[in-house]
Amino acid sequence: MPLLNSLPDYVLTTKTDELINWMRKSSIWYMLFGLACCAIELMHTGGPRADIERFGATPRASARQSDLMIIAGTLTLKMALRTRLLYDQMPDPKYVISMGSCSNCGGLFQLAYSVCDGVDKVIPVDVYVPGCPPRPEALTEGLLKLQEKIMTERWLARAPGTNGEAA
């Protein structure tokens, strides 16, 4: 955030969009949507070593209280319908991180008859994190990339009448 030299220390000048986005990106609450093996790595990412809570991301159990959905694990066709329902239950603005190969593209289960090849067949995805399973450091990088994406959103310039999504 740019500071002008002549102002005292307790005055901050910045753009409104940057201030709003900085507050939003530092407090992304994710929904626990651990389906399979990546769920264990998601737990480890929230665990003591690669602590994701230092970035403000805390786990929530309910979709209604979260703004990020981390799809961790294989999406079967039986689960895909419920995934769509849970995504619709999240309030706007919402983001989706697809964690692991299985939710990116089906992973090593593309030969299976009951697996949905990739979660982007049912919901729109913002960040894809590759790996099988991705290390906690990889998932943290995915979250940081999402934070970069959030910083590019514009709030004051959007047309009136659109819902909470940024332009």
Partner: peptide, 14 residues
């Protein structure tokens, strides 16, 4: 059945 990934059938293919 929400995580049925048909591992037993895949064995016959790989």
């Amino acid at each position: 059945g929400y995580l049925h990934r048909s591992i037993e059938k895949i064995a016959e293919k790989v």
